[in-house]
Design a protein around this nucleic acid. Structure first.
Lengths: 138, 138
DNA sequence: GTATTTTTGCAACAATGATGCAATTATTTT
DNA sequence: AAAATAATTGCATCATTGTTGCAAAAATAC
């Protein structure tokens, strides 16, 4: 487990530091998405707020985690399961937000359908969020 | 025009005040979406920041405008074209964000397709944002 | 083990949003 | 149309979220 974490960091030519290991561990242990605030809570007082921000930024840049759109306009992050390379994420799956437990879940297998746009519009990227009740809360 | 604005306010049993008229006018004249910051800029120094916040909140509650999900997690608002009643919005259309002019446009005629969710998930509401280049920027 | 590079934590700042309360403005009543 | 009532506004203040510069500390390279 710890080995895996270090491997991911090395793989992305990032130095192995306490904060990076801890935050990455958090993402690996939870399978939902995490907000900045979630991470701050769960890491306790271990790290500075600023460090968390910067670590998340770095992870997004390297393609280790990706942004998740939410309906309430808060920022959440989740692990990139697929082969995301630095710079281009393959993040074309639907995200689900549970109204009960308010967890955000990546539905890796549900790809975003394409829609027919009015004349003149050229699509480049789509995001889709579905809210409702998840399996565990039913 | 001014008549129409007052009608909308009366229709929603809201008192007719300067800020409400001005902000509503802004939404009627632009057909894109507006953020809080946009509105503050365009109303100049006429109103207090807090008044703008409260006016937007009130309009959302009454179903005059609706929230728009954005990819960069900033909050935008747009007029409800259809028959939104206080409490329940019929906001099932796709939103388009132009990468060039960064305008947010309601595609009233493009309804959000439904997707098949994994076993156990019960959908309640969907949001979809498409980014790309709009007709005017091509 | 030392030198170099990177990361961290602190301080300070900016932007965004919320709340309580007195003053102002709009509506209702007479 | 003026007074009474109700609603809205602006101000002060505070909370939260996110950013930046810089010196100290830690990690990697030599």
């Amino acid at each position: 487990m710890t080995v895996k974490i270090k491997d991911i960091l090395k793989h992305n030519s990032l130095s192995i530091t306490g904060s990076r290991q801890k935050i990455l561990e958090l993402f690996l242990s939870k399978n939902g998405a995490l907000s900045h605030a979630d991470i701050e809570k769960k890491t306790g007082e271990s790290f500075d707020r600023v460090t968390v921000y910067r670590t998340l930024q770095t992870f997004v840049e390297r393609g280790i985690i990706h942004h998740i759109p939410t309906t309430d306009n808060s920022i959440k992050y989740a692990l990139c399961k697929n082969d995301c390379a630095p710079g281009h994420h393959h993040d074309n799956h639907v995200h689900f937000i549970c109204d009960e437990c308010s967890k955000t879940i990546c539905l890796e297998d549900v790809i975003i359908p394409s829609v027919k746009l009015p004349k003149g519009f050229t699509p480049q990227h789509s995001e889709m969020v579905v809210t409702g009740v998840c399996g565990e809360c039913r």
